[in-house]
Computed example of a mutant assay.
Amino acid sequence: MLERRVKTVRALERGLDVLIEVQTRKAASLHELHLATGLPKATLLRMLVTLGQKGLVWQRLADGAYLPHVDRVERAPVTSSSHIAEIASPHMKALSTRVAWPSVLAAPRLDHMEILETNSPLFKLDSAILGPVGVKLSYIHTATGRAYLAACGDAERDSIIDRLRPRNPPEGSEAELRQMLLQVRQRGYATRDPLLPWPDRSKQLVLRDGRRSMAVPIMVAGAPIATINVTWPGRRGADEAVVQRHLDALKATARAIGRALEMNPN
């Protein structure tokens, strides 16, 4: 008996080709997918929207890249960078409608914080360009780093400070750093002030870029796993005024991201 020949569904084949391409690359722009598959960009967009609605891919705000939905391709821990960014991304998009200035999401590394996501592209302002993903931020000279360092446990904080301590720190400088972190814990958010003497990464950039920033930790099960900030040009508002206007929205976003991560621990 001859085997019955069944036609394949060409549209489904093409959709699976796109999904496999995204999974293989881990992150891909629309243009990269266009070059890899030969499909028109309009067709690709429809496929990507469909794949997104089915929970198979998601689009990062920071650069518009399409990434595989983490839960579909791996059982990653809650601290997975991809998982944190994916969960946080829609909340950061919502934050952009409430706060006039952009934000970055960053996670801790050995001696720096790493940007995982930013809603900066949603703001059509030269002064609002933050990121890109992968940029390394200082623990002690950025609000982003300070928010994490202040919120983590004593043992982790001591280990990070040990890594950052210069060979010959100025007398009293470590006590100054620890006192500043205590004040951050007490008030619940971090800023770039006061300036500190240790020559950690980002110090010169912070001194000359003319920006101001505040940041809060994202807590999961009582411990920080990342931080989220708001950054604005110094000439556009004093710290006190911006904090008073936007801190509640920033904290609410951090809580929402933390709850979402607890509900989707992956």
Rank of each mutant, 00 (worst) to 15 (best):
P68N: 08
D162P: 01
V206A: 08
V216E: 00
P224A: 07
D193I: 09
W101L: 10
E156S: 11
E174I: 13
A94I: 07
A215R: 00
E32W: 04
A65I: 05
S82M: 08
R167A: 15
S159W: 10
L181E: 04
L182E: 15
D63L: 04
A221I: 06
L33Y: 05
A155E: 15
L45N: 12
P233H: 04
T227N: 05
D200M: 07
I129N: 14
I218S: 06
G131T: 03
N266T: 13
R109K: 12
L177A: 02
Q186N: 11
A249S: 14
A128I: 05
A223C: 11
L250S: 06
R235G: 06
L39T: 06
E176F: 08
V242T: 07
L149N: 06
A175R: 11
K26D: 00
A42S: 14
W232C: 05
L16R: 11
L125M: 12
L110N: 15
G145Y: 01
A147F: 03
R72S: 09
H91V: 05
A62T: 11
T118H: 00
G38D: 02
A252D: 15
S173G: 09
A221F: 07
S29H: 12
T97R: 15
L130H: 03
A62K: 02
M180L: 13
A147G: 07
P108V: 03
N168C: 12
L33S: 06
H246K: 09
V104N: 05
E21G: 08
E156Y: 12
N119D: 12
P132S: 10
D193W: 11
E117Y: 01
L44T: 05
R165G: 02
L149G: 02
H83L: 15
H141D: 02
G172I: 05
D158N: 13
H69R: 13
L44Q: 02
G258R: 03
P199V: 07
V242Q: 04
E13K: 06
R4F: 10
A175F: 07
P102I: 02
D162K: 15
M263W: 06
K251V: 14
R185Q: 13
V216P: 01
L196T: 08
I140F: 00
R245T: 15
Y139R: 02
A151W: 02
V230E: 06
L44M: 01
S81A: 14
V70C: 11
H83A: 07
Q53Y: 09
A27W: 15
A190P: 05
